[in-house]
Structure formats: structure tokens, C-alpha cells
Design a protein around this nucleic acid. Structure first.
Length: 313
DNA sequence: CTCCAGGCGCCTT
DNA sequence: AAGGCGCATGGA
């Protein structure tokens, strides 16, 4: 039987839904027809950008929602993008990235799912991270009401659920050497040694320090979580890819050390450095892929003819 | 078949 | 402090 649907329209200004959902900050969005589907905070949801005068996003769920603030918070639709872009330094590479990716936003995700996703991200391509996340959800996540035939039938498993299984179960989810990292993080959260909720009220430096106490979580992963799940917009995740971009755009002649580059990003991009990072990252991946010595890494969000792919397991 | 991927920890200088 | 290497797994 087809479940009932419940809709909500969110007015937005300067919001590029496609760019936002496939810019490598969240791993469970799938392009389906002309819209996007995922499970957010335990609820199946579909998003469609409504074509028209001023922008809006139409959200569809399968359960009635008392209010939709959970989704508006997740999508950060209330954020005034212009006021953020105004804090950017006025220089060529960043201006070009902003011009090319106008409307790209940062999401505000669930800390545990975000932490887990980026623990799984090391030395993996985004496609593989996504597959790995889905294996984990199918194996350990609670089932959610979803339309018949959708691949998103499970929510992301709680830390306690991940902590409760043997590490070999995680290896069966194709995590490889990251399995003990995720398992350790899940146990730390489940046993209360790491309180992800209490990080919200801590200064960024201290929150970062606590995240980095986890085995398998270094500066880069900690900064991803701080930026994508805690809204610390000064955090600037410096991965190999963005470092390559920075060297290419800002230091074409020199060969600055990683620590020198870290110093550069910490002082150059200002209060919303994390936003700047997202623009540079996405722009480089979409438009500069080959120039920087790698074949186009971004799979284009497939058109309306695409069929959602089901995992073999 | 090889190569390498949104890193990190550990081991050398 | 800075640099090199192995780690599982599977796209390209």
C-alpha cells in the first residue's frame, strides 16, 4: 500500500539544492527524478526545487509533521547567504568560485551521523563512502516508512547500535581498516565518554580537541564535523584536495608546507572560512577537475531518466 | 592488470 | 617538526 504524503513549502533565496546536496558534505542524498531523497533524522524525506519566481523548496514526508523546524534547521534555509558572502576576502579565486556556485549552502547535520560518515571517508572516494553508509544503515539502522521500491529504507543507526555489534559486522559493511575507528567512536558515544550534545556549548578549540581524542579522528575529520554538524563556520577542513586547490590558486610558484597552508587558511578567509572552503572545494571539483590533475571526480546528478540504484546486498 | 581514493597513526630522521 | 608508509576495498 502506498503511504500518505505530507507536504511543506519552504521559501528560499539563493539556494542551489542540487549543489548543496551533492557537494560532499552529506552522503545519503540520492537524485530521484527531478528531486532528491534521503532519510534525515529518522524520517524519509523528498525535496524538490520548485521552479518559479522566487525560489522555494517543497518537502514531502510520509508521516505528518507537527512542525518542520527540524528540516529547516538541517537545510539552513533561514541563513542569509549574502551576509556570509560579504565577509569573504575580496580576491579573484574566491570570487570566481562564488560566481560559479551561487546558492551553494552548508547543511547542519546530525553530529553522530556526520562523525561516522567522515570517519569512513578517509582514503575513500565519495561513491564508496555512500555505499559504505548504506551497508551500515541496512545492517544496523531502524527501518523507516518509505515509498515502495526506494533504496532509502533505513535510518542511520544510533551509536549504541553500532557499539553493540562485533567489529566484524562493520567489516562486512566494507569499512576495512576504518572499522575499529568507527567502533571505537560508537563506544565512546554510547558509553558517554564523548557527549556529542555537550560539544554544542564548547568553544570550537575545545570541541575539536575532544573529537580528536577519538582514534581515527584527526584535524581534518574533526573540522568536517565542526563545520557540517555544529555550524562552526570558521572551521576549514583541509583535505588533500582542497590543499591542492589552494596551492594551485594562491601559491602557484611556491611550494608551501602543509602547516604554512593551514596558517594561511586560518588567517585569510575570515569568520566564514568554512563556507569559503565549500565554495572552493565544490567549484574545483565541478569545474577544475582536469586542470588539477584528476579526471572529473563528480558524477553529475543524473537526469530524470535515471533509475535509483539498489545495493547488491 | 595497476593505481589511488575528502586521512590517520605510527615510525623514522 | 617534518616526512614516509601501511592500512582495506573497489572504482577507474
Amino acid at each position: 500500500m502506498v503511504p500518505a504524503e505530507f507536504r511543506h513549502r519552504i521559501l528560499v533565496v539563493d539556494y542551489d539544492l542540487a549543489a548543496t546536496l551533492c557537494s560532499g558534505q552529506a552522503f545519503r542524498w540520492q537524485s530521484v527524478g527531478s528531486g532528491w531523497e534521503s532519510v534525515v533524522l529518522g524520517r524519509w524525506v523528498r525535496l524538490d526545487a520548485v521552479p518559479g519566481t522566487s525560489g522555494s523548496i517543497e518537502a514531502t514526508t510520509l508521516e505528518p509533521q507537527r512542525d518542520w523546524s527540524w528540516l529547516e534547521t538541517y537545510l539552513q534555509t533561514g541563513v542569509d547567504l549574502d551576509s556570509i558572502l560579504k565577509t569573504f576576502p575580496n580576491e579573484r579565486p574566491l570570487n570566481e568560485a562564488v560566481a560559479a556556485c551561487r546558492g551553494l549552502r552548508l547543511l547542519l547535520q546530525d553530529p553522530w551521523e556526520c562523525l561516522a560518515g567522515f570517519i569512513l571517508s578517509s582514503t575513500k572516494q565519495i561513491v564508496q563512502i555512500r555505499q559504505c553508509m548504506e551497508h551500515l544503515c541496512r545492517r544496523l539502522g531502524p527501518p523507516v516508512t518509505s515509498p515502495p521500491g526506494t533504496p532509502w529504507g533505513f535510518a542511520f543507526p544510533a551509536a549504541s547500535a553500532v557499539a553493540a555489534v562485533d567489529e566484524s559486522v562493520l567489516r562486512e559493511c566494507r569499512m576495512g581498516f576504518r572499522a575499529p575507528y568507527l567502533h571505537g567512536a560508537a563506544r565512546a558515544v554510547a558509553e558517554g565518554r564523548l557527549n556529542l550534545d555537550s560539544l554544542r556549548s564548547l568553544p570550537t578549540i575545545e570541541a575539536r580537541r575532544q573529537l580528536m581524542e577519538l582514534h581515527g579522528v584527526g584535524r581534518k575529520i574533526a573540522d568536517c564535523v565542526l563545520l557540517f554538524a555544529y555550524g562552526r563556520q570558521d572551521a576549514f577542513p583541509a583535505d588533500v584536495w582542497i590543499l591542492k586547490v589552494l596551492r594551485h590558486l594562491y601559491f602557484p610558484r611556491r611550494k608551501p608546507s602543509p602547516s604554512r597552508l593551514q596558517q594561511f587558511v586560518d588567517t585569510h578567509f575570515g569568520l566564514n572560512a568554512g563556507y569559503a572552503q565549500q565554495y572552493l572545494f565544490h567549484h574545483a571539483r565541478v569545474n577544475l577537475g582536469t586542470t588539477l590533475g584528476r579526471p572529473k571526480p563528480v558524477s553529475r546528478p543524473s537526469s530524470r531518466h535515471a533509475t535509483p540504484r539498489h545495493d547488491p546486498n
